[in-house]
Design a protein around this nucleic acid. Structure first.
Lengths: 228, 228
DNA sequence: ACAAAAGTGTTCAAGCTACACCCATGT
DNA sequence: ACATGGGTGTAGCTTGAACACTTTTGT
């Protein structure tokens, strides 16, 4: 016999995006203000329902694109949240995703959503289980950032060593020794020093680096492991 | 205005369980033979639909209990699989879970499901995207096993150092040096040596150890990190 | 006595941590 | 000239990897 699916329950399934950015000093999170009930006016993650003709990945990209206009964003699936009463008005499951975006590129945030960047150290309490989602996302970001070169998604194409160190300090919420950090990065041998200097932070100026993705992929294929 | 959910699409959502066991030598996976179309007769993961009154965790526990009769099994959510055509007959999303069970305890497998333990190194090709789920689960198991003492879920209460080493060798698919392995384990200081010896494997007999969970929790609270 | 698995330490290399001074430049 | 951030090297320590022989006991 063939399975008959008609009597199995069907569920609303949403995606919610934890959108991380970096302003050169602190990790940021992009939140939206609900413009519908319940919890209208409160802060939440950007989300949306998964349609019949899209995967959850596609839904997450669509949601992110709707908010920011950006395409090809770094996006990784996190967890499913399926508590029955996680939303008060209906049983809605949610699959969370975290996104890393270069905050400088992100020029046109759709005003319709009243979105705002908050400091990850100091953002308002969120609706439903969104706080839990953010906590889980931060933990995942830390794990990933220590074994994959995803940090560069958060930086502009060219950045100083100081920027990079600030980024990792923000991700891990921990201070590093400048000399040790730089020699670790140099030992990885996946950055290229460009001609240019950033003159805004000091009189001397500091060299700008680029992540050499091709080199990284090549080393990866040869058994190299990224490790911070 | 309050959000009206009635026009959003609703989805069938299943859980699928990757059930790991250990027979003292090799990692095993428990598979079931489909007794309905499509793909009747082929091997698959044990799964089931999520009901209206249960979370995905509860559904996974239910599914596992239906198959094995066991309760309180170690179960961890993995990923969501949402490709539209991942099953041919309907659009079904699936949340995967992996389970660790002590194979000795597992006496009464429900015969209705034609379940069978396979060697993880040599099991049949599975239906749909279940092979991918297993691959993802193995990777997650390795990660978790290297930072959390979950290996003990797969062993009987008392075990020899050799058992433990065999287990980790099976998980990581890699050979370890006996001396280095034992001194690493001893350095962790979370096992207790019992009076008893296992006399089945040698004339001399080898001491049996127990995982001291209370001690582990205490050390954890003091900042200890498990690491293999 | 011998076969078979259990049990046990040391050495070396690599990587990590801690730590302080000079350099270049704009004002 | 001085104030500001940029840039650089070393020594001690910890950790992980490689490596071989003795012990116990049933047959």
């Amino acid at each position: 016999m063939t399975q008959d699916y008609s009597h199995f329950p069907r569920h609303l399934v949403a995606v919610d995006c934890i959108i991380f950015g970096f302003d050169g000093e602190n990790l940021k999170i992009l939140l939206v203000q609900r413009n519908f009930e319940p919890k209208m006016g409160e802060w939440s993650l950007m989300g949306g329902f998964i349609g019949n003709e899209e995967t959850s990945d596609e839904a997450a990209h669509r949601v992110l694109n709707t908010l920011t206009g950006l395409e090809n964003i770094y996006l990784e699936q996190l967890n499913s949240y399926t508590r029955i009463d996680r939303e008060p008005t209906a049983r809605i499951m949610s699959i969370s995703y975290y996104a890393l975006i270069n905050i400088e590129k992100n020029i046109q945030i759709n005003e319709k959503y009243s979105a705002k960047w908050f400091d990850l150290q100091d953002f308002p309490s969120l609706i439903f289980d969104h706080n839990e989602m953010v906590e889980d996302a931060v933990l995942r970001l830390r794990r990933r950032a220590s074994t994959r070169p995803i940090g560069f998604e958060l930086l502009p194409e060219k950045f100083t060593m100081k920027d990079l160190q600030n980024l990792y300090e923000a991700i891990f919420n921990e201070q590093f020794d400048k000399r040790n950090f730089i020699s670790k990065i140099n030992a990885l041998d996946i950055l290229v020093k460009t001609e240019g200097k950033d003159m805004t932070s000091s009189k001397k100026g500091s060299f700008l680096y680029r992540f050499d993705e091709a080199k990284y992929e090549k080393k990866l294929a040869e058994g190299f492991m990224f490790k911070i």
